[in-house]
């Protein structure tokens, strides 16, 4: 990096914790378009990091880089001690340890809820079917829809589908959960049931990175809030700092629009 370039804002985790995700100088381009610019971020075990920002600010791309759904061009990403390089083994390793929940659920429509959940444990973790199903039922219970196990995703409501998606990710036993706007595609009346599950998860000590527009969730559960704009981290802080006394003008402008 040339010296003249403005120094990027770093989002380092508190030093008292044990970092599980470390990102250093991350850059990514879509063709000519510079989506992520000098992102440095680390997340401690058990921390809940909420990423907010206007659409197109690169926040989704950021968390998609963490499990290598998007390839980064510069910088380093290390998840639980495994660095994401061109090594297939490392990529698989990182994906096993991170769960991801998508905006549009992405449940597999040709499989039942139970099959959706047990597919990866059986095929990737090589669990026995009985064990996988037992774990699946446990997590279905946890997200509050044990009775839907044998239905197809198409027969469930949006909120139920998203909860199945969370259960699907949890059953793999991930160390980190990535949420990519999990409530944006939901009807307002079912957003609550999904958020409830996420809150419970956070309280159990799961490491989470959540991209969301739900400011209530950020304020309530977030350990740290990161505001991104134009592919950069603009401001980092605790929810209190963020919602009560933001430093940057850009942050203030954004918050004034959505709050």
């Amino acid at each position: 990096m040339p010296d003249t370039a403005p120094a990027a804002v770093r989002a380092d985790a508190p030093t008292d914790g044990q970092p599980i995700i470390e990102i250093e100088g991350l850059n990514k381009w879509f063709g000519e378009f510079h989506v992520l610019r000098d992102i440095s971020l680390s997340v401690n075990k058990g921390e809940v990091v909420v990423v907010i920002g206007p659409s197109g600010s690169g926040k989704s791309t950021l968390i998609r880089c963490i499990n290598h759904l998007e390839e980064h061009q510069q910088g380093r990403i290390v998840v639980d001690g495994t660095e994401l390089t061109d090594d297939v083994r490392n990529i698989d390793q990182v994906r096993r340890e991170t769960g991801m929940v998508f905006q549009s659920f992405n449940l597999f429509p040709h499989l039942t809820v139970l099959e959706n959940i047990t597919l990866a444990p059986i095929r990737v973790r090589k669990w026995k079917k009985s064990k996988a199903e037992e774990r699946a039922r446990f997590f279905l219970d946890k997200v509050g829809i044990p009775e839907q196990a044998l239905k197809f995703p198409g027969q469930l409501s949006g909120g139920q589908q998203q909860r199945v998606a969370i259960a699907r990710a949890l059953t793999m036993g991930p160390k980190v959960m990535l949420f990519d706007e999990p409530t944006s595609a939901l009807d307002p009346e079912v957003i609550g049931e999904v958020l409830e599950v996420m809150v419970a998860l956070a309280q159990e000590g799961m490491t989470m990175i959540v991209v969301t527009h739900e400011m209530g969730f950020a304020r309530e559960v977030g350990d740290r809030v990161i505001f991104m704009d134009q592919g950069q981290i603009v401001e980092v802080g605790t929810p209190e700092h963020f919602f009560l006394a933001p430093r940057e003008e850009r942050t203030k402008a954004f918050l004034s629009k959505i709050l």
């Binding site: 380092d12 970092p19 470390e22 990102i23 250093e24 680390s42 380093r76 290390v78 660095e83 390089t85 061109d86 090594d87 297939v88 083994r89 490392n90 990529i91």
Partner: peptide, 22 residues
């Protein structure tokens, strides 16, 4: 910083490298 100090893994066997597998 822990990450910045550690050396990146440069040697990847070619049969596991995404770029060379293709």
């Amino acid at each position: 910083m822990a990450l910045a100090d550690r050396d990146p893994v440069l040697r990847i066997p070619f049969w596991r490298n995404v770029k060379t597998i293709g």
